[in-house]
Design a binder for these strands. Structure first.
Length: 430
RNA sequence: UCCCUGGUAGCUCAAUGGCAGAGCAAUCGGCUGUUAACCGAUGGGUUGUAGGUUCGAAUCCUACCCAGGGAGCCA
């Protein structure tokens, strides 16, 4: 007898097959038992009728609890009464392990409770759908960049000092000195771009900020492309093409999962280049016009980003931020040095900044000056400033936050559901 | 770090100063088409912790702990 996955039952109608899975729910009606079984690829209802299976198999159904593991044999039948359109007419039930009383019921639970049981929460249809979409998004990003001949270059996670010197880092003992968990691979990607042209890193990023919001994690994943010989506009073009490709691929490949999440896919269908571009100056005007008190020179808060993104049905680039509020390596606009060639991409529907990037300083003297102005330890950046001494070229890059992108595409109200085991302020379990 | 909200049965919640409750889950029984099945029965409590006010506190007051949301900062 062939052992198959539930995702493939449609190809085996009329055949007797074997399924391996877990009990999702059980309903009993005297001499009929309905077993809803999941195997990670899907769900199917098995109908166990007394007299049509060996007596011991029928009695075994009594013992089955939610999430017990079992092998189920039966004949696949098309049935309009089944939610998926298919049912299993059970011929054999073989429990493998009877699960203890399962903490997660099919009813409503609070977030704190579910987070404590995150290792089991992942089994629910909604969480599984999110993880599949996350997988699709990551796969799409890598396919897109690979097709454009980017080279994946891994950045170190243990680093000797802050990449940007501003945010709080996690520190760890490194033999007789201190190392920090990376908050960005970008500086290393600049070195790699000078070696290979177009590169990207994809890895975890750590921020010890004490942020307690629906948009923050202390450990998150970021893809950071970096390109030699590319200016700000070339950078934005790549970003809008990448984001559009990812969204369209999820729509094509993960439609069922989006339905499970009750995502309004209409809003995603429109995500195609070009994305609107507004300058920081224009953004300030828009805010003021919408009754938001905002002074030129400040950075946008979460509410400000939502107001800006609401003006367009698409992700929107905000470019040329004040040089003072951006990282030390951002290249000033040659026509207006008080602003820099940076740009953030704000997602629609209030999801905020999903990409931050810009053109980097290529002038060695200016870079040295900025390192001094930002009070950064010069010795730690010698290798970085070397990049401007040995064939400096214009170059640009960006960082795309995976979890924020997943939250937006899935339409989730909190980022913590986008990553299998979220690390949050006050939570490092499980 | 600051501001706001909350903490009652395994879970989700009710009880606003006067007997600690319901639904689900669990256990037992019933049912041949259930769709978060249904019906009947049973067990289940140091009301986050410590103190205070009161004849009487889940309820009011103080401190602390924990959680959630937000600010700052960021992706």
């Amino acid at each position: 007898m062939q052992s198959i996955c539930i995702s493939h039952v449609a190809e085996h109608v009329g055949e007797e097959v074997e399924l391996q899975g877990w009990v999702y729910n059980k309903r009993s009606s005297g001499s009929l038992v309905f077993l809803i079984v999941r195997d990670g690829t899907g769900f199917i209802q098995g109908v166990v009728a007394k007299g049509e299976v060996p007596d011991e198999d029928f009695q075994a159904c009594d013992e089955l609890t939610q999430e017990s593991s079992l092998v189920l044999r039966g004949i696949i039948k098309a049935d309009k009464r089944a939610p998926s359109g298919y049912e299993l007419s059970v011929t054999g039930v073989e429990p493998l392990h009877i699960a203890e009383e399962y903490p997660i019921s099919l009813k409503k639970h609070g977030v704190d409770f579910l987070m404590d049981w995150r290792h089991l929460w992942l089994r629910t249809p909604r969480q599984a759908a999110i993880l599949r979409i996350r997988h699709e998004i990551i796969g799409a990003i890598r396919t897109f960049l690979d097709q454009r001949e980017f080279v994946l270059v891994d950045a170190p996670i243990l680093t000797p000092s802050a990449c940007e010197g501003t945010t709080t880092l996690f520190s760890t003992d490194y033999f007789d000195s201190t190392a920090y968990l990376s908050q960005s691979g970008q500086l290393y990607m600049e070195a790699a771009a000078m070696a290979l042209g177009k590169v990207y890193c994809f890895g975890p990023t750590f921020r010890a900020e004490k942020s307690k919001t629906r948009r923050h994690l202390t450990e998150f994943w970021m893809v950071e492309p970096e390109m030699a010989w590319v200016d700000l506009e070339g950078n934005l073009k790549l970003q809008e093409e990448l984001v559009s490709y990812v969204v369209q691929r999820v729509l094509e490949q993960r439609r069922d999962e989006l339905v499970t999440l009750e995502r309004d896919t209409g809003k995603l269908e429109n995500i195609k280049p070009p994305f609107p571009r507004i300058s920081y100056d224009e953004a300030v005007e828009i805010l003021n016009k919408n009754g938001v008190e905002f002074e030129w020179g400040n950075d946008f808060g979460g509410g400000d980003e939502t107001v800006l993104a609401e003006q367009f049905g698409l992700p929107v680039f905000v470019h040329r931020y004040p040089t003072d509020i951006k990282a030390f390596y951002m290249k000033p606009d040659p026509d207006r040095p008080e602003v820099c060639l940076s740009a953030d991409l704000l997602a629609p529907e209030g999801y905020g900044e999903i990409v931050g990037g810009g053109q980097r300083i290529d002038d060695p003297e200016l870079l040295d000056l900025r390192i001094r102005e930002h009070d950064l330890p010069k010795e730690a950046y010698v290798w970085y400033t070397d990049l401007r001494k040995f064939g400096s070229v214009p170059h640009s890059g960006f960082g795309l936050g995976i979890e924020r992108a997943v939250a937006w595409i899935c339409g989730l109200d909190h980022i913590r559901e986008t990553i299998p085991f979220p690390r949050l302020l006050n939570r490092i379990y499980p």
